[in-house]
Design a binder for these strands. Structure first.
Lengths: 358, 358
DNA sequence: CGATTTCATGTAATCCATTACATTGCATTG
DNA sequence: CAATGCAATGTAATGGATTACATGAAATCG
């Protein structure tokens, strides 16, 4: 353990660093490893990066020293030199939203398969925070980003953007996106309510700033059209995706004396709020009112009654997004594309035939 | 826009870089900014880092150029030189667990107040992944880490660990931790059940590898002792914190024919599972069985009935953890400490007086 | 007015690893 | 045996910023 014997000519200039022989493991550099293993820094680097080009014996010797001293190469120096970090940042508006976790998992799977690490940034939908994380790419601390909001921060590197949009999408067709066909999925949900006999179907929309919410509303309207039902503006309201928003929406409808036998919600949390508000007002779900959500978050099957909802292929979205990002990183030339997946309606207990009463 | 006129002597050696006058915004360096603003790199750096030491006019000129060309300093180079990144990594076992999101928020608040950014790493309780993220500190890509698991990865930098443990804690008293008094909190929950008249109180424990789970069980046992109730081993089982584990536990108790009028669960998700399993077996909560959870996640107030649970001061835990980490980063000399906060029982609808029947 | 500060700026060392290119020694070949 | 090729290793340039130290000019002082 006393093997700290180093070449005398080593370091002439950095004073305090010289007095190093204390107990605690210090931070090492290639130089030191090289000196101790009696090779050049190049050989140390090679032994670590491309072991096959180094002779068996020196490689062994170097690895021993590295292990013994607990050397970890300085990633900053390496990344500076190689101009890549093998790190990507995934931006999500809200980690409390269980919808994203499965998407993240898909992202991480593909990332790891390809030697990338994923770091998550929670933006709380704040533009400055989105931009702050995006700047990490401009500052070369990450290779690319996957953003799960409908705003794509500006990160022009050499005129191209190493950005993929997941779950959401933006009009700009320079940006690659992965998302589902929200019009079709919402339409299918409403179609199903129609087949159950419902005609007065309320809709709790999401923020109209988000294209996918506009699409969901569009799907709702088209389904009503197909069924020859006139959309009643009084049965449409907007929420912010929170449980509370779902409760408020129902409270509003009821206060206005609207009559409806079904509610379609733009996400599951608002649906959970809706169920709760309905129940607390003495209405039974689904006997009096059917409720459909969107996303199929993990809790959806544990509400009472269990929630009928549109299941997004969350894992696939994540995998596909990361796959596209890697493509983009490997070859900046690939044209951006929008990948549209499909989603399935999962029927559980929160929906039922329209009861004759209503 | 044609202002690319640079000093003739600039760059002699890097060939392809010279042919740069194309349209798309290239990546800039201090050198280029300096050349264009007709100052030295030092002045550019100063204008950006400590504007007050640069004269009004040059500062203005430099900022103009920086803005016009969209220059972002290469953070790798800067961090390499300054040996700090102002980045911290927060490790959480599972982003799908809503418990952590509020803790994260506390961490981020304090981080931003102090000029740090937070990146999240999901470990899925895998040791290799924990270690991989921790290695970012060793590799100098982050300044420190806050981990929310009961395992603290090895990251010795100069013999000290820039690590703080939040929510959980480890025995090793070289590691700073922030957590609640789990023995007391669990005790209070069980005490409450006792005051409601319950004597046959089942317990769904968490993984015994985690000290806080051991503490919660300890709190349960002590509370029973205080009430002169003998703990019945058949009424204790272990789960993995998932909703499903809560369901399985109840199914097990019922299959064994155990009789109990209350269940205390080591976290809310298992409590949600327990409620669901009880309900599906025709038992009413709280009329037949009272259920108490732990954590007070966001969904706890939306179960039916709303869950009585132990509310951890999640935001405070996060804030305190980040505060301690910053302390540690500013002065490696500060002795590690364990900070124990207290938690409150929140009574909602899932608990009630023991019904005479049972 | 010469000496001394003070202010603004420039020069060059530095952080640490990667890697193009150079060198050395040895085996192979005609 | 000289010429050639290959394998293993070394030397030094490089990436892009920060900053200690040096320099020059202007301001202040006696």
């Amino acid at each position: 353990m006393s093997g700290d014997g180093s070449k005398p000519k080593r370091q002439r200039n950095n004073g305090e660093r010289a007095a190093a022989a204390s107990q605690p493991a210090r931070v090492r550099t290639v130089k030191e490893i090289a000196a101790i293993a009696k090779v050049s820094v190049a050989t140390v680097s090679r032994a670590l990066q491309r072991p096959e080009v180094v002779s068996e014996t020196t490689r062994q010797r170097i690895h021993d020293v590295v292990k013994r001293l607990g050397y970890t190469p300085n990633a900053l120096a390496r990344n500076l030199r190689t101009a890549r970090t093998r790190l990507i940042v995934a931006l999500l508006p809200d980690i409390a939203n269980p919808f994203f976790s499965e998407v993240i998992r898909g992202i991480e799977q593909v990332a790891h398969e390809n030697g990338y690490s994923v770091l998550l940034g929670e933006t709380q939908s704040s533009l400055v925070r989105e931009q702050a994380y995006a700047d990490m790419v401009a500052a070369r601390q990450a290779d690319g980003i996957i953003t799960m909001s409908h705003r794509v921060p500006a990160v022009p590197i050499d005129g191209r953007l190493p950005v993929v949009n997941a779950c959401e999408y933006v009009k700009d067709n320079k940006i690659s996106s992965v998302y589902i066909d929200n019009v079709a999925a919402a339409g299918a949900a409403v179609d199903y309510l129609v087949t159950l006999g419902h005609r007065d179907i309320a809709f709790i929309a999401g923020p109209s700033s988000s294209p996918i919410c506009v699409d969901r509303e569009q799907g709702y309207r088209l389904a009503l059209q197909r069924a020859n039902i006139a959309a009643d503006p009084a049965l449409i309201t907007v929420g912010d995706f929170s449980i509370e928003a779902g409760e408020r929406a129902i409270d509003l409808f009821l206060a206005q004396g609207q009559s409806f036998s079904a509610v379609f919600c733009s996400n599951d949390e608002m649906a959970i709020g809706a169920i709760r508000a309905l129940t607390s007002k003495g209405l039974r779900v689904p006997d009096d009112v059917s409720v459909v959500g969107f996303d199929d978050i993990r809790f959806a099957r544990y509400t009472s009654p269990p929630l009928t909802t549109v299941a997004q292929p969350k894992n696939a979205i994540g995998r596909e997004a990361m796959t596209m990002l890697i493509e983009l990183l490997n070859d900046p030339g690939v044209p951006p594309r929008k990948r549209v997946l499909s989603a399935d309606l999962v029927v559980r207990g929160s929906t039922g035939l329209r009861s004759p009463g209503r």
